[in-house]
Design a protein around this nucleic acid. Structure first.
Lengths: 144, 144
DNA sequence: CACATTTAAATCGTGCACGATATACTTGCG
DNA sequence: CGCAAGTATATCGTGCACGATTTAAATGTG
């Protein structure tokens, strides 16, 4: 009967494997800069919008404080970001880049370019794939 | 100037987010059966080819013994799988399903169907997406 | 047969993920 | 004002991932 449960027929596994493959492709380049992959994602957000709160960062990355708090503390210890309690609301922690964190942007820029080159995808394919994945994520997050 | 580093333009983030979204979609259903998502993947392999070695399992899932050994021990403790040292080669551990592990197959079958329904994808879209992801994984794994 | 080499799992250390709970601060309402 | 309810972050416990090392068994070579 059905091969519905064959590993290789599972979209979920293809996704899981691809995600880990991409992360591993980034890892060695990021390691040279002292970063992990989730830390890189945090920097992407901060380079766009410095001063965000932990909660806002979590909304962008779909991660919660249990993941972000220790991760941000490690980044602070390495001198990449700064965590500041807001004056107006002491519950809030706002996130800023250190000068080192700002400089990293230039060094990081070529990494996604390189990984993309190795991916063998055309720009069009990559855009389509990204769009499909974003739609999928959206669907699965809204109607559980 | 370049928006090359905008979070939402990154395929890598779309992939990472989608993968976690899919895993979370599976999680509550699997939890009822006492399984985690990686454990479900292990079962997919064992339902196809009982008796595989740890290394072979790792090749299928792209995971190594540091991940699999403790995971398999937990599954053994829960009575889902059995780990047996090969007689011919004492270095090898072969993996078998317990009766409980076999029975789980029926209960699990509907989970991917349900998640797929919520994904809003057509069968054709899902197949195309899976194929793209498999190709991407392949490319990134071969030429690191 | 000895012994270096290779191979299969297991172990170690670090860093995510995430459900659940705790703590501390703020706000709204009587 | 006083206190309940709400909010922001932090903490706790468990389970992956993965680079690196270790242990033990098998194999090949002189």
């Amino acid at each position: 009967m059905s091969d519905a449960l064959l590993l290789d027929s599972q979209l979920c596994f293809a996704l899981y494997a691809a995600s880990r493959a991409v992360t591993s492709a980034y890892a060695p380049h990021l390691k040279e800069l002292g970063l992990t992959y989730p830390q890189y994602l945090v920097l992407l957000v901060l380079w766009e919008s410095e001063g965000v709160r932990v909660t806002q960062l979590g909304e962008r990355l779909h991660l919660d404080s249990a993941t972000l708090t220790p991760l941000l503390k490690r980044m602070e210890a390495q001198g990449v970001v700064e965590r500041r309690r807001s004056q107006q609301d002491e519950r809030v922690v706002e996130l800023f880049l250190t000068p080192h964190g700002k400089r990293l942007k230039k060094k990081v820029e070529e990494i996604p370019t390189n990984v993309f080159k190795n991916s063998g995808l055309s720009l069009k394919q990559a855009r389509e794939l990204r769009t499909s994945l974003q739609a999928l994520t959206q669907r699965l997050r809204t109607d559980d």
